[in-house]
């Protein structure tokens, strides 16, 4: 009999510390399944961020190097340039990637660094307790936008995937979600394709994942999953944002 819920080889047995219903747990599992399926566990180096996923090395059974807050793409660049035949990925929250780390992200993309970036967009700063993120929606309340995000005072939510898609160096960018079984399957396909693109030397690729944060959204898991569909994905539409086709055809 085939076990349906077996743990991926590259996922450690440590129980997750994430809040109930948190998207990070699902995304970790998806990435580990892909690493298993591609058979790259021994060949992969990951870069976890400062953020709720800061202790990702407790879960991923691959080599990992913690980056200072926001510097994931720069740290990953250093690893990849030194060991070009390894699969290198960075895992970053929205505050990490699109606020403090904007410059590192932007320029790694522009250089076409052959790395894979997992960009976890939960529209808030999770770890520090629910402050406004660059991806916080207009009108969304947070501890630093108590009356709701106001475009004039706080700017607009940043669509990082669309912005990076404009750079010549990017090979493949897709936005996915993990709020339903169907979306998780699509997310897994996208992550697999991204790693395959890297293996094929296609250049910078990024998967943006809309990830529920029930704790700071102050919702239960069901409502949080629904909010991704009904509200969040209106500002951040799901789908392929750029695909140069530079990776192998069968990557799809």
């Amino acid at each position: 009999m085939k076990k349906v819920f077996s743990r991926p080889r590259s996922l450690k047995s440590t129980p997750f510390h994430y809040c109930a219903g948190c998207g990070h747990s699902i995304i970790h599992r998806v990435i580990c399944e892909v690493i298993d399926e591609l058979g790259i566990r021994g060949n992969t180096i990951g870069v976890p961020p400062a953020g709720c996923a800061v202790v990702a090395y407790n879960y991923f059974d691959v080599d990992m190097l913690e980056a200072p807050h926001g510097r994931g793409c720069a740290v990953a660049t250093g690893i990849k340039r030194t060991l070009p035949d390894r699969v290198v990925f960075s895992y970053q929250g929205d505050g990490d990637l699109a606020a403090i780390g904007t410059a590192e992200t932007f320029h790694a993309a522009n250089r076409g660094e052959n790395i894979t970036v997992l960009f976890i967009n939960n529209a808030v700063y999770g770890m520090t307790g629910g402050q406004m993120a660059p991806t916080t929606l207009l009108g969304q309340t947070s501890t630093t936008s108590p009356p709701g995000r106001n475009a004039i005072l706080d700017g607009h939510p940043i669509r990082m995937s669309e912005i990076l898609a404009n750079l010549e160096g990017t090979a493949y960018i897709e936005r996915v979600a993990v709020n339903s079984a169907q979306n998780i399957l699509r997310a897994k396909k996208a992550v697999k394709k991204a790693f395959q693109y890297q293996i094929d030397g296609a250049g910078f690729n990024m998967i943006e994942v809309l990830s529920q944060c029930p704790t700071n959204w102050k919702m239960n898991t069901v409502d949080a999953c629904r909010w991704v569909d009904e509200v969040m994905s209106k500002t951040f539409p799901i789908g392929v944002i750029k695909d140069t086709g530079k990776g192998r055809k069968d990557a799809d």
């Binding site: 403090i100 700063y125 770890m127 520090t128 307790g129 402050q131 501890t143 630093t144 936008s145 108590p146």
Partner: peptide, 16 residues
């Protein structure tokens, strides 16, 4: 300011 523990309450106080 920019969020960081253990001083977020100050940033949040100023936001408010």
């Amino acid at each position: 300011g920019y969020p960081i523990t253990p001083q977020n309450e100050l940033t949040e106080y100023m936001a408010e």
